[in-house]
Protein backbone atom coordinates (compact mmCIF):
# COMPACT_ATOMS: atom_id res chain seq x y z
CA UNK A 1 0.00 0.00 0.00
CA UNK A 2 1.40 3.48 -0.79
CA UNK A 3 2.04 6.00 1.94
CA UNK A 4 -1.29 7.84 2.29
CA UNK A 5 -4.10 5.38 2.93
CA UNK A 6 -6.69 6.67 0.49
CA UNK A 7 -4.73 5.53 -2.69
CA UNK A 8 -6.07 2.05 -3.42
CA UNK A 9 -3.21 0.17 -5.08
CA UNK A 10 -5.33 -2.61 -6.56
CA UNK A 11 -8.94 -1.39 -6.90
CA UNK A 12 -11.24 -4.23 -7.93
CA UNK A 13 -13.92 -3.61 -10.54
CA UNK A 14 -16.83 -3.03 -8.20
CA UNK A 15 -14.60 -0.89 -5.89
CA UNK A 16 -14.13 1.50 -8.78
CA UNK A 17 -17.80 1.48 -9.72
CA UNK A 18 -18.95 2.18 -6.16
CA UNK A 19 -16.31 4.85 -5.46
CA UNK A 20 -16.87 6.69 -8.76
CA UNK A 21 -20.65 6.54 -8.28
CA UNK A 22 -20.25 7.96 -4.80
CA UNK A 23 -17.91 10.71 -6.00
CA UNK A 24 -19.61 11.82 -9.23
CA UNK A 25 -23.15 10.48 -8.89
CA UNK A 26 -25.37 11.02 -11.97
CA UNK A 27 -22.78 12.64 -14.18
CA UNK A 28 -20.96 9.31 -14.86
CA UNK A 29 -22.98 6.31 -16.11
CA UNK A 30 -21.56 2.81 -16.53
CA UNK A 31 -22.26 0.83 -19.71
CA UNK A 32 -22.50 -2.97 -19.37
CA UNK A 33 -20.86 -4.80 -22.25
CA UNK A 34 -23.13 -7.31 -24.00
CA UNK A 35 -20.31 -9.50 -25.27
CA UNK A 36 -20.21 -13.02 -23.92
CA UNK A 37 -17.06 -14.88 -24.91
CA UNK A 38 -14.39 -12.16 -24.86
CA UNK A 39 -11.82 -13.26 -22.30
CA UNK A 40 -10.84 -9.78 -21.08
CA UNK A 41 -14.42 -8.67 -20.44
CA UNK A 42 -15.44 -11.94 -18.77
CA UNK A 43 -12.49 -11.72 -16.39
CA UNK A 44 -13.49 -8.18 -15.47
CA UNK A 45 -10.55 -6.22 -16.91
CA UNK A 46 -12.61 -3.74 -18.87
CA UNK A 47 -14.87 -0.92 -17.63
CA UNK A 48 -16.89 1.38 -19.90
CA UNK A 49 -18.05 4.80 -18.69
CA UNK A 50 -19.83 7.71 -20.28
CA UNK A 51 -19.01 11.05 -18.59
CA UNK A 52 -20.09 14.64 -19.08
CA UNK A 53 -17.65 17.20 -20.40
CA UNK A 54 -17.54 19.35 -17.24
CA UNK A 55 -16.79 16.51 -14.86
CA UNK A 56 -14.15 14.84 -17.05
CA UNK A 57 -11.06 16.59 -15.68
CA UNK A 58 -12.01 15.88 -12.04
CA UNK A 59 -12.93 12.28 -12.92
CA UNK A 60 -9.54 11.85 -14.60
CA UNK A 61 -7.76 13.43 -11.61
CA UNK A 62 -9.73 11.18 -9.24
CA UNK A 63 -8.92 8.03 -11.19
CA UNK A 64 -5.26 9.04 -11.45
CA UNK A 65 -4.72 10.00 -7.83
CA UNK A 66 -7.10 7.77 -5.90
CA UNK A 67 -7.47 4.65 -8.03
CA UNK A 68 -3.88 4.43 -9.29
CA UNK A 69 -4.66 4.62 -13.04
CA UNK A 70 -1.10 5.54 -13.91
CA UNK A 71 -1.17 5.65 -17.70
CA UNK A 72 -3.43 7.33 -20.27
CA UNK A 73 -3.17 4.87 -23.12
CA UNK A 74 -4.93 6.89 -25.78
CA UNK A 75 -7.18 9.86 -26.49
CA UNK A 76 -9.32 9.24 -29.59
CA UNK A 77 -11.66 11.59 -31.39
CA UNK A 78 -14.81 10.30 -33.16
CA UNK A 79 -16.90 12.42 -35.50
CA UNK A 80 -20.63 11.45 -35.28
CA UNK A 81 -21.70 14.03 -37.84
CA UNK A 82 -24.25 15.63 -35.50
CA UNK A 83 -21.83 15.73 -32.50
CA UNK A 84 -18.17 14.93 -31.72
CA UNK A 85 -16.92 12.42 -29.16
CA UNK A 86 -13.58 12.01 -27.30
CA UNK A 87 -12.69 8.55 -25.96
CA UNK A 88 -10.08 8.10 -23.22
CA UNK A 89 -8.44 4.77 -22.34
CA UNK A 90 -6.77 4.68 -18.92
CA UNK A 91 -4.69 1.74 -17.68
CA UNK A 92 -3.89 0.53 -14.19
CA UNK A 93 -0.70 -1.51 -14.16
CA UNK A 94 -1.38 -3.44 -10.96
CA UNK A 95 -4.74 -4.96 -11.93
CA UNK A 96 -4.19 -4.35 -15.69
CA UNK A 97 -7.67 -2.86 -15.75
CA UNK A 98 -8.58 -0.58 -18.70
CA UNK A 99 -11.22 2.10 -18.24
CA UNK A 100 -12.83 3.60 -21.35
CA UNK A 101 -14.39 7.01 -20.86
CA UNK A 102 -16.42 8.49 -23.73
CA UNK A 103 -17.36 12.18 -23.64
CA UNK A 104 -19.80 13.83 -26.04
CA UNK A 105 -19.05 17.31 -27.35
CA UNK A 106 -21.62 19.46 -29.22
CA UNK A 107 -20.55 20.54 -32.70
CA UNK A 108 -20.81 24.27 -32.10
CA UNK A 109 -18.55 24.43 -29.01
CA UNK A 110 -15.63 21.99 -29.58
CA UNK A 111 -13.83 22.57 -26.28
CA UNK A 112 -12.80 20.11 -23.59
CA UNK A 113 -10.44 20.27 -20.60
CA UNK A 114 -7.01 18.84 -21.40
CA UNK A 115 -5.68 15.98 -19.25
CA UNK A 116 -2.04 16.48 -20.29
CA UNK A 117 -1.31 18.08 -16.90
CA UNK A 118 -2.33 14.80 -15.21
CA UNK A 119 -0.74 12.39 -17.71
CA UNK A 120 2.18 13.66 -19.77
CA UNK A 121 1.56 10.74 -22.17
CA UNK A 122 -1.73 12.20 -23.39
CA UNK A 123 0.02 15.38 -24.59
CA UNK A 124 0.76 14.28 -28.14
CA UNK A 125 -2.53 12.33 -28.42
CA UNK A 126 -4.44 15.54 -27.70
CA UNK A 127 -2.36 17.51 -30.19
CA UNK A 128 -3.05 14.88 -32.81
CA UNK A 129 -6.80 14.83 -32.07
CA UNK A 130 -6.81 18.64 -32.28
CA UNK A 131 -5.12 18.77 -35.69
CA UNK A 132 -7.20 15.94 -37.19
CA UNK A 133 -10.65 16.76 -35.72
CA UNK A 134 -10.45 20.36 -34.58
CA UNK A 135 -11.37 19.60 -30.94
CA UNK A 136 -9.65 22.26 -28.81
CA UNK A 137 -8.17 20.99 -25.53
CA UNK A 138 -8.16 23.89 -23.06
CA UNK A 139 -5.05 24.19 -20.92
CA UNK A 140 -2.84 22.19 -23.29
CA UNK A 141 0.74 23.57 -23.11
CA UNK A 142 1.46 23.51 -26.87
CA UNK A 143 -1.66 22.89 -28.97
CA UNK A 144 -0.19 22.96 -32.52
CA UNK A 145 -0.14 20.79 -35.64
CA UNK A 146 2.00 17.72 -35.07
CA UNK A 147 1.68 15.25 -37.93
CA UNK A 148 0.25 17.27 -40.81
CA UNK A 149 2.37 20.06 -42.33
CA UNK A 150 1.97 23.51 -40.79
CA UNK A 151 0.35 24.84 -43.99
CA UNK A 152 -2.81 22.66 -43.63
CA UNK A 153 -5.93 24.62 -42.67
CA UNK A 154 -8.55 21.86 -42.91
CA UNK A 155 -9.27 19.06 -40.37
CA UNK A 156 -8.78 15.86 -42.42
CA UNK A 157 -10.48 13.26 -40.19
CA UNK A 158 -13.86 14.93 -40.08
CA UNK A 159 -16.57 13.14 -42.01
CA UNK A 160 -17.16 16.34 -43.96
CA UNK A 161 -13.65 16.10 -45.52
CA UNK A 162 -13.79 13.65 -48.41
CA UNK A 163 -10.73 11.55 -49.43
CA UNK A 164 -9.55 11.46 -53.05
CA UNK A 165 -11.39 8.19 -53.77
CA UNK A 166 -14.67 9.09 -52.07
CA UNK A 167 -17.40 11.28 -53.64
Amino acid sequence: MSEDANIIEKPSRDDIVSLVKAEFGGKVEFIESTKKNIKAINEGRRLFMKADREVLHDLAKYLHDKLNFEQASSVAGVDWVDHMQVVYHLTNYCTSMVVEITVDIPNDDLHIASVSDIWEGANWHERETYELFGIVFDGHPKLERLLTPKSYEFFPFRKSYKLRGQE
Binding site: S74, V78, E120, H125, E128
Partner: peptide
Protein backbone atom coordinates in the same frame (compact mmCIF):
# COMPACT_ATOMS: atom_id res chain seq x y z
CA UNK B 1 -15.30 0.70 -40.09
CA UNK B 2 -16.81 4.04 -39.05
CA UNK B 3 -13.73 5.03 -37.06
CA UNK B 4 -10.53 3.07 -36.23
CA UNK B 5 -8.11 4.62 -33.72
CA UNK B 6 -4.61 3.15 -33.44
CA UNK B 7 -2.51 3.77 -30.31
CA UNK B 8 1.11 3.37 -31.31
CA UNK B 9 3.68 2.79 -28.53
CA UNK B 10 6.51 4.56 -30.36
CA UNK B 11 4.30 7.68 -30.81
CA UNK B 12 4.20 8.07 -27.03
CA UNK B 13 7.80 6.99 -26.43
CA UNK B 14 9.03 9.62 -28.91
CA UNK B 15 7.00 12.29 -27.12
CA UNK B 16 9.04 11.44 -24.01
CA UNK B 17 12.34 11.80 -25.91
CA UNK B 18 12.54 15.47 -24.85
CA UNK B 19 12.65 14.32 -21.23
Amino acid sequence: PYRLKVRSPVFVNVSASKH
